[in-house]
Simulated assay, not measured.
Amino acid sequence: MQQSGPAGLSGLCRVTDHLYLSNGRAASDSSQVTRCNITCIVNVTETGSSCPPPPGVEEYIHIRVSDSPLSPLSVHFDEVADKIHLTAERGGRTLVHCNAGVSRSASVCMAYLMKHRGATLLEAHRWVKTCRPMVRPNNGFWKQLTQYEMELRGCNSVRMVTSSMGEIPDIYEEEARNMMPL
């Protein structure tokens, strides 16, 4: 698995040669979008941009989803993963963003890596977190990602477990224990 390093925490973070992840502010920076040769933008927020896409962006897709554990993000996993894949096959580059570039957009990128790059959910999370260290999908999106991994692979590399903070992915178990008062 080829991984790219951070492109500046406030900028566009390269996940693969054809996939970038960012927050809304960086996605609206036409100089960054142009410099990275982005041809497709996927906006995963409740409200869309009122600005036209920067020059060179041929497709702008808005997935209206709030950053709530109850939001049905998984209904968009296949659609967005396939769009990223198709854009790459055509030689284009996709930028996926949400408001902070932490939960919704990261979850969608992880779904793409599982479906089209053969990554397990655990590998996809590490891959995206390497590119953008602040990545942290909400627990509802984790639950949807574990279900998606089960559909794709027939097994799970990440499990949801009960903790004092509610249901969390097992990769956060130690962190949750360390947050408990002594």
Rank of each mutant, 00 (worst) to 15 (best):
I84R: 06
H97F: 12
V161I: 15
V128N: 06
V33S: 04
R35G: 01
K83S: 11
E123Q: 15
G91Q: 10
L113M: 14
K115Y: 01
D170Y: 11
P54L: 12
E167D: 07
Q3I: 09
E89Q: 14
V42K: 00
R126A: 14
T16Q: 02
Y112E: 00
N23K: 02
S164V: 05
A111I: 08
V57S: 11
N37F: 05
V102L: 11
R25E: 03
P53V: 10
P53L: 12
R25C: 00
P52K: 15
L70Y: 14
L86R: 12
G48T: 14
M180H: 06
V108W: 09
F77K: 09
F141T: 04
G140Q: 10
I84C: 11
T34A: 07
V128I: 14
P181V: 08
W142S: 03
S103H: 14
E46W: 07
H97V: 04
P137Q: 07
S164H: 09
T130C: 12
M110A: 12
N23G: 15
A119P: 00
S164G: 05
R25V: 02
R117A: 11
I41W: 11
R153F: 08
E79V: 07
V135S: 06
S105Y: 12
E123Y: 03
T120K: 09
V161E: 09
G92S: 06
R104F: 10
S163R: 03
S105E: 12
L19K: 00
L152H: 04
L95I: 07
C98K: 12
V128L: 05
G48F: 07
L95K: 08
S28G: 03
P55G: 11
V75I: 14
K129C: 09
I171R: 10
S107L: 13
C13I: 00
S10V: 01
P52H: 14
H18D: 07
Q144F: 04
V135C: 06
S4N: 07
H97D: 01
R159W: 02
L9V: 06
G92R: 04
H116V: 06
K115G: 00
T146P: 06
A26H: 03
L113V: 12
H18G: 01
F77G: 10
G24H: 02
L9S: 06
N37H: 11
R35K: 12
E175M: 13
H116T: 06
T120I: 07
S10C: 03
S68L: 15
V57K: 08
K129I: 01
L122E: 09
T120Y: 10
S28N: 07
E58H: 14
S164T: 08
S28P: 00
M110V: 09
K83C: 13
